[in-house]
Amino acid sequence: MTSGKRVPLVFVLLSGLAFYYSGMSPAFVLNEVITRFIRDGVMVLALIIPITAGMGINFSIVVGALCAQAGLILAVDFGLGSLSGLLLMTLVGMALSVVSGLIIGICLNRVKNREMITTIIIGFLATSIYQLIFMVGYGTLITPTNQEMMLSRGIGIRNMVDLEMFRNVMDTLWLFKIGRIEIPLFMILMVCAFAVMIKYITMTRLGKKFQVVGESHEKALALGINVPRVRIKAIVASTLIACLGHLFYILNIGMLNVYTAHMNTDIFSCAALMAGGATVVKARVRHGLLGIFLFHSLFIVSPQAGQNIFGNPALGEYFRSFVAYGTIAFALILNARNQEAKTGSIR
């Protein structure tokens, strides 16, 4: 229980310190944090359900992100703009993520207790397959309708796809300013809606089942719960939410970096969740929301702080990737220690 408060506290201290040394203006940082909140918020929330179901951190949310990108590229390929395009990419992305979620779920049911390492590898593998399809498949097996997004050699898609027709469709809705701080209320509400939705799921019968399966497979089985099916549902839900979350991310940026946009989404989302006080076995919506703020404020200010303290912005850069990986490593170590059996000795 204590780690649930200690970790966020460390992040508050670190980001406070880094903010002090960075000399950035609070308004700038706040604007950035709000942007990050919109971009990464839903992705972080996607991790919560698998953790509740006892499957640990689902690093294969990358697959959800890839599904979103595939849907997006398809929409661009067909030259659909605005709403119809949005609809198409959402539908394609969701369909793909349900299918891939099912496959991942079946895989994970074979590897009880080693889910996390398996999801990492699945993420890597999916990235390769995705690259193969869009770098090689496009132009050879698949004929594109939109030649503009192709590389000049005719095979493979360009590294960058401009999403002009979707830019500012949602971001500017209900946008208003308080002083120098911009608040895109609609998007913030959207992220909050996802948070409410996940909170709601935990309060339903299905949510109870996730929790029971997460506590103990054997007991859940004895109580007549179909454990494999519940676990698959958890992964499908997670992949779906990740897909939608990544759509938010790309649309907010307004450009699709075809081959790299999905990279590290899993690591950063997970680190953010852990920063909010979640553990590998227990995660709540509030951990996610708090975590995004803490983690990203540190992320924004640390390069500048590195520049000002050490005279080298790279050091701040290293510091933040260390924080990202280190937070996850720390959460893993801490969790295992709580479960550790004590050795025999007379007390």
Binding site: G56, N113, R114, M116, I117, I120, I267, F310, N312, A314, L315, Y318, F319, S321, F322, Y325, G326, I328, A329, L332, I333, N335, A336, R337, E340
Partner: peptide
Amino acid sequence: ILNRVKGKEEITATFVGFSFIPLMNFFWTI
């Protein structure tokens, strides 16, 4: 570290390795 995380060594090792790299990057710069 790994003796503390029996049964979860592989995933922990992955992240210990990952987080060790930026730490060493620090060292290489100075």
